[in-house]
Design a protein around this nucleic acid. Structure first.
Lengths: 151, 151
DNA sequence: CGTGATGGTTCGTGTCGCGAACTTCTGTGG
DNA sequence: CCACAGAAGTTCGCGACACGAACCATCACG
């Protein structure tokens, strides 16, 4: 449960601090492309397919009103577009514009590159093990697909 | 490098998505205590010892001007206090108030509890393995101590 | 038809985070 | 002893975020 102070670290601290690391990468990678981390994340989600506002809020864990603003700003930047939903006049599909597609792919690739470099100290087998364990954690906790699997 | 679509997940996606999970826990746990995630994080850092504004900015990856605001707001909430640094008249030591200490411990404990529950699907040995691997990633990348090790 | 639920937007408020400019103090070289 | 570069913090103005509450339009159902 608890770990002692001999360089070893517990699961909890390991998760929290590696999350910190990932956040930093996200922040830096997006900033370099004139994005905010939130907009970067939005683009990554939309790479898979268009989504409605409600679905997006669900996945990203945001209130509907927050989504409106985020999509507004991203749309203003020309990266995203609101399309009418043929099935439902009220609803809206948020989709990447061509430029948004480009930026998304660039951002995604760069983020992957950097995250991939984090476990540089691990050999192939260890990386596989880590991937497997994290995969199960993610699976068990039903994390929404905020980050695609590499093509 | 890349993983295919048979339920398996790569290291990169695993890291990103588990980070997402951790962020959500942070957000929820802090919100329940009337904190923002940032203030919660600040409290966690200060649990170890007081720090100067510069050091804090360094650890949290924030600009000095951002720190001023964050400490301002947290101070206004009565959780933190600016003490003069005896060594340097310009400098300031940010420390927890008694109430801040309480809130910090509560928040820290609750966060631990929840993060600890994330890898519930793993057995003891697997948790240990995960801890070891993440520990090395964290160590290799020199993540600042934004989250203490359990007492 | 109503009528309740659903998908989104608007509005007001507080928090965040940044860079640039500024003040005050430290320490170092002359 | 005195400049003076540089470090520690703050202030200011700005845009981005996130929320809840109130609101509008539309859908679906009885």
């Amino acid at each position: 449960m608890a770990k002692n102070e001999d360089g070893k670290i517990g699961v909890v601290a390991g998760l929290v601090r590696s999350a910190f690391l990932v956040n930093a990468v996200y922040a830096e990678a997006s900033r370099e492309r004139g994005l905010t981390p939130q907009q970067g994340q939005l683009l990554c989600v939309l790479m898979a397919q268009p989504f409605g506002m409600g679905e997006l809020g669900q996945m990203l864990g945001l209130a509907k009103s927050s989504m409106t603003g985020l999509v507004d700003r991203t749309e203003r930047n020309g990266l995203v577009r609101r399309e009418p939903d043929p099935r439902d006049t009220r609803a809206v599909r948020v989709a990447l514009t061509p430029r948004g597609q480009d930026v998304a792919e660039e951002f995604y690739a760069e983020t992957c590159r950097r995250i991939d470099r984090l476990p540089d100290g691990l050999n192939a087998a260890e990386r596989d093990t880590l991937a497997g364990l994290l995969g199960r954690v993610v699976l068990d906790n039903e994390v929404p697909v905020v980050f695609m699997e590499q093509a």
